[in-house]
Design a protein around this nucleic acid. Structure first.
Length: 419
RNA sequence: GUGAAUGUAGCUCAGCUGGUUAGAGCACCUGGUUGUGGCCCAGGAGGCCGUGGGUUCAAGUCCCAUCAUUCACCCCA
């Protein structure tokens, strides 16, 4: 039997109500904040991701779906969206149309990792990117957007963490301070962290190793070594967040894994999805556009994992399950009138009703059961004695009442179904 | 890439220390009087017990391998 590729999942009709609910909430919130949808290709030149996300990151180093196409070009299934959005922004000269662009997306992403709870190889993210302004208002807006959407899914076990990584010069300066602190303790660190000491020292803060954590607890913290401008910006983000009423914690150890971040970074975590608890993450990336060959242009954004959010919803039982319903089920007595009944169904559909009819030529009893399974509000019995008198029988499935109505008075049939 | 657990009907699982034709609940189908749903009742269909090898008179049950799934590490949404 051919099965779906490891780490991929079918999203079945029974899952759809939940997905649609999330997507609607995303679109509504994005509309409230005036973000416009953007769609970009699922695959890009490999260089785009290598340059933006960073060669030393795990995403680029070992998680990308990269292959060579028939023209010998190296292409990659997008592991995240920010690089693509910035590329599209530059390539289409959006910055010349207007100074500020606020964009959102809902799209599949691909990373070749070992699947586990809340982690898939093809997964879906929604997210937003605001390009063209370095206003801290937008940093705060990203957190508010993400938080509001997640909240709209009824989730409660949440934590918002924010931090600032500052600008490269102050960060480089700080890295040296951190190096000085860690050098004498280097041998006490885990093997993994010793490697990071060379490749990306900040990420030692991420380590879940106990000894590492102990050592890092007393480590000097980037927040204490920020330049004045970054500090000022961070203060403003906090001011806006305070006013918004969103509860948050400052986490000096929050170091996001992607290379392009500057200044504000944040995460929204859930306590109900297992080990992969980040539902949403983002931050500012003021140097990315220039790095990708565009005009210098500040930006800030976030991405949220849809499967993770839905997993949290299931675990917290935050969304009452609602069965989809149809307006009318057409049951027919007469096999000889099957196409006539079918046309009658189409007539109702033409009036905007959702209508199902029998395709299996089953007994009336079976058809009624089918109507019930479809959550039909009404059943039309088509055929038999009534049809001989040019009538149908209309049954209200909620109270069981039924009445004969002449086919000549379509209007009153429609009116009854409208309720 | 590393570690652990689990693979029996569509789904969730039982199957005791190896012993005849492999079970339950849910779901599905058909009935419970002529043409009427949800509840209830009766019946039915559905399983190379993940795959391959081994031990044994005998394997769903024990051993090995393999594949798959799940969870965790790493990292991230």
């Amino acid at each position: 039997m051919i099965k779906a590729i490891k780490g991929t999942k079918d999203i079945l009709p029974s899952d759809m109500p939940l997905w649609h609910f999330l997507e609607e909430n995303v679109r509504n919130t994005m509309r409230e904040f005036n973000y416009s949808e953007i769609r970009t290709p699922v695959f890009e030149e490999t260089r785009l991701f290598a340059r933006s996300i960073g060669e030393s990151t795990d995403i680029v180093g070992k998680e990308m779906y990269t292959f060579t196409d028939k023209s010998e070009n190296s292409v990659t299934l997008r592991p995240e969206m920010t690089a693509s959005v910035v590329r599209a922004y530059i390539e289409n000269s959006l910055d010349r149309l207007q100074p500020l662009h606020k964009l959102f997306y809902i799209a599949p992403m691909f990373r070749q990792e070992r699947p586990q709870a809340g982690r898939l190889r093809q997964f879906h993210q929604f997210g937003a990117e605001a390009l063209g302004s370095s206003s801290p208002l937008l940093d705060a807006e990203m957190i508010i957007l993400g938080y509001n959407i997640i909240k709209s899914m009824g989730l409660t076990d949440l934590a918002v963490k924010i931090n600032s990584l500052g600008i490269p010069s102050s960060r480089e300066n700080y890295k040296n301070i951190l190096k000085d602190y860690l050098s004498p303790k280097l041998k006490e660190l885990s093997e993994e962290s010793q490697k990071r000491f060379e490749t990306n020292i900040l990420r030692i803060f991420d380590s879940k190793n106990e000894k590492d954590a102990e050592i890092m607890n007393d480590a000097p913290v980037l927040l204490d070594h920020l330049d004045d401008e970054s500090l000022e910006s961070f203060e403003q983000v906090k001011t806006v967040l305070d006013a918004s009423g969103i509860p948050y914690q400052i986490d000096p150890k929050l170091v996001r894994g992607l290379d392009y971040y500057t200044n504000t970074t944040f995460e929204i975590l859930s306590g109900s999805v297992g080990s992969q608890s980040a539902l949403c993450g983002g931050g500012r990336y003021d140097l990315l556009a220039e790095q990708l060959g565009g005009k210098a242009s500040p930006g800030v954004g976030f991405a949220a994992g849809m499967e993770r959010i839905l997993l949290a919803c299931q675990n917290e039982n935050s969304i009452p399950d609602q069965k989809p319903e149809i307006d009318v089920y057409i049951a027919n007595f007469d096999k000889s009138k099957i196409s006539e009944a079918y046309n009658f169904a189409n007539k109702l559909r033409g009036n905007g009703f959702s209508v199902e009819s029998d395709y299996l030529s089953r007994s009336i009893k079976a058809q009624l059961r089918e109507a019930n399974k479809n959550n039909a509000r009404f059943v039309v019995f088509y055929g038999g004695e009534e049809l001989a008198e040019n009538k149908i029988q209309l049954k209200n499935m909620t109270d069981g009442e039924q009445a004969n109505i002449s086919l000549d008075s379509m209007d009153s049939i429609i009116e009854k179904i409208r309720g």
